[in-house]
Design a protein around this nucleic acid. Structure first.
Lengths: 328, 328
DNA sequence: CTGTTAGCGCTTTCAG
DNA sequence: CTGAAAGCGCTAACAG
C-alpha cells in the first residue's frame, strides 16, 4: 500500500494539520512543534506507513531528488563503472535516471526528462547535446565548457609512450576510436608526440569501440602491420585492445613476443586477459563519484569546482615487452 | 530556458485558456478545438519553446513516465546488456531509473522512489525486496510469484551436460554463484542431474561473480581438482568462467587440452577469449526488452503475461574438447 | 468549440 | 506552538 496514506490521513490520525505533519516529517519541527505533538505525528506516520509522495514534493519544492546520466554505451565496462561510481556517491539520496543512446545519435534525453531531474551528468561531447536550464557536469571531456571532471590522459599517454620507447619500439600502430571525442584526440596527440620525440613512427587506424570490430580489423590488417615492421600496437580503449589481442592470438602472433600491446582504461578484463594488459588506468569509479559531488554542489547553488582533472597511472603488466626483431 | 515557459504563458500568447493549451499539446484536441485555434496554440508553443513540466503532469495524471530497474551489479556485462535492452524497449517513451545495490544488500530503492515510478523491473530475488503498490516484473527469477521473464536455463544446462558427456568427461567441477538466486539453483540442479544420469561425477564449489575471485579460487584449488581427476569445469556465469580461464592459463594448464570449460551467459568477452568460451547463451538484451513490454502492459492495466520463458542456446566454441587422460 | 474550476499531494509563508 | 491558505504547473470534468 505504498503511496496510499497521504499527509491529510496522517494529520487526521494525529489530530493536527497537514502543515504540522510536513514539518515533523521533514525534520523542520525544531522549535515549531512541541515534542508531544511530534510524537503523536510520528506514531501516526508509523501506523499508517506514510511515505511522502515524491512527485508532489518535487512540484512543491522544485527539487526532484534525481539526476540523469547521459551515456553512450552501458555495455562498455568502463561506462558501467562510471555509473557504479555515481550510484555510490548518490548513496540513495537521489535517483539516477539513465539516458542511453542507441547507435550513434545522442542519448534519449528529452526536455520533458530534463524537467524531471535536478541536474545532469553528461558523458557525451558537449557540442552535441545542449541541456539548458539545468546544471550540467561534463564527464571525461577536457574541452567541455563549464564544470566537468576528466582525466589527465596526456600524462598517461606520455608515460605509455616512454615505456614503449624504453622497450625499443620504433614502429607503432595506434588504434583510435572513431568517436570524435576530445579525450580520444588528446590520447592520440600525446602518445604520438612523445613517440615521435623519441624517434618512433606511429600510424593511426580507427575503429569502433567494440571487441569484434577490433578483432576483425586486426585479422584484416595484421599482414600490413607486420610488413611495416610494427612491433607495438596501442588501442584507445581496453575494449579495442582486447579485440586486437583476440585477433592476434587467433593468428598465432605472440604477445608480447612478436608485438606488444598498450591501452587505456584498465577495465577488469584487462587484468585477467592472457597476457594481462599494460594499460593506462583511468579511474572510472572515481570519475563517477567526483562528478556526482560536483553536480551536487552545483545543484545546491554552490560555485561547483570548474574543472577537476583526475590523475591516471600507467599499469605495466604482461602485454608489453622488448621490441621484437620480427621482420617486415 | 527549458521549463521556463508555462502553460499559462502559452495560453496568454495564443489568447486561449490553459485547458485548450493542454488539449492541443496532448493531442486530445480532436473535435474539441478548432483547427484555427490549434494552429495558434502550436505557434505559441513553438515561439516560447514550451515543454510541459513532467513533474506537474505526473502529479495530475498519476503517471510519471518512468520505470525503475533494480539490479545488482551494472558492472557485470550481462546486467548491462539487460539494461540496454530495457532502454531500447523504452525508446525514449519513458525514463529508466536505476537502483543499484552496493555490496550485498538490496538495491537502494526507497518507498519515495517507488512513488516516482510507474513500475519496476526487479532483477533481484523476489523474497528480499518487496515492492508494494506498484506493478513489478521479475527478471531471470523462475521462482518469482507474479509476472516475470526468465530463461529456460534447465534445457541449456542439460545441453551443456550432454555436450560434456559426449566428449567423455566424467569428473566435473561446477563453480556455482554464492548468490542464493533461483536461476543459479536451477542451472546447477539441471547440470548436475544430467551429468549424474550420464554416469559422471560433479562436485560444486562456490564463489562470487567476480573475475579476480574466480581466478584466485582456481589458483588455490587447481591441484585438488587435478588430484580428483577433473577434466572439465563449468561456471555459473561467464564472468566466473573467464576468471577460471585466467587462472588456468597462468598455471600453464591447457584449455581444452587439459581441462574443458563450459559456462552460462555468453557475454561479449566470452567470444573473444582464448580459447573462446563454450557457453549457454542467455539472451540478456531480449530479457530486458520483453520484461519492459510486459511491464508496459501491466502499467496500462492489461493482464500482463504471467510468465514468459525465453529459450536459450548452447554455443559450442573452443573451450571444450575431449576429456583428457590427465591423471590425478 | 472554449473557458472555469477543482483538484493531484505536499511545502511554506503568514496569522494567530 | 499550530493551523489556514496560497501555491507548484498541469489535467480533466463540467459548464456554457
Amino acid at each position: 500500500m505504498v503511496g496510499r496514506a497521504r499527509a491529510t490521513d496522517v494529520a487526521a490520525r494525529a489530530g493536527v494539520s497537514v502543515a504540522t505533519v510536513s514539518f515533523v516529517v521533514n525534520g523542520k519541527a525544531h522549535g515549531r512543534v512541541s515534542e508531544a505533538t511530534q510524537e503523536r505525528v510520528r506514531a501516526a506516520v508509523a501506523e499508517l506507513g506514510y511515505v511522502a509522495n515524491e512527485t508532489a514534493r518535487a512540484l512543491a519544492t522544485g527539487r526532484g531528488h534525481s539526476i540523469a546520466l547521459l551515456a553512450h554505451d552501458m555495455t562498455n565496462p568502463f561506462t558501467a563503472e562510471v555509473a557504479a561510481g555515481v550510484a555510490a556517491a548518490l548513496a540513495g539520496r537521489a535517483n539516477l535516471v539513465l539516458a542511453l543512446s542507441t547507435g550513434d545519435e545522442a542519448p534519449a534525453f528529452t526536455d520533458a526528462t530534463a524537467s524531471t531531474v535536478d541536474g545532469v551528468l553528461l558523458n557525451w561531447p558537449a557540442g552535441a547535446t545542449v541541456v539548458t536550464g539545468t546544471p550540467v557536469v561534463h564527464l571525461d571531456d577536457p574541452d567541455a565548457p563549464g564544470p566537468g571532471v576528466c582525466f589527465d590522459v596526456e600524462s598517461g599517454a606520455t608515460a605509455l609512450a616512454r615505456h614503449l620507447l624504453d622497450l625499443g619500439h620504433r614502429r607503432v600502430r595506434y588504434l583510435d576510436a572513431v568517436r570524435p571525442w576530445a579525450t580520444f584526440a588528446r590520447r592520440r596527440a600525446a602518445l604520438t608526440d612523445e613517440l615521435a620525440r623519441g624517434g618512433a613512427q606511429v600510424r593511426t587506424e580507427r575503429c569502433a569501440i567494440d571487441l569484434q570490430t577490433a578483432r576483425e580489423l586486426t585479422l584484416a590488417r595484421w599482414d600490413g602491420w607486420r610488413a611495416d615492421g610494427v612491433t607495438a600496437v596501442v588501442g584507445a580503449t581496453d575494449i579495442q585492445t582486447l579485440g586486437v589481442l583476440s585477433g592476434l592470438t587467433r593468428l598465432g602472433v605472440a604477445v608480447p613476443g612478436d608485438v606488444s600491446l598498450g591501452s587505456f582504461d584498465d577495465i577488469a578484463f584487462a587484468a585477467v586477459a592472457s597476457p594481462a594488459l599494460t594499460t593506462v588506468r583511468l579511474p572510472a569509479h572515481e570519475l563517477g563519484r567526483r562528478a556526482t559531488d560536483v553536480l551536487g554542489e552545483l545543484i545546491d547553488g554552490g560555485p561547483g569546482q570548474r574543472h577537476v582533472v583526475l590523475p591516471v597511472e600507467l599499469v605495466v603488466r604482461e602485454s608489453t615487452g622488448p621490441a621484437s626483431a620480427l621482420l617486415g
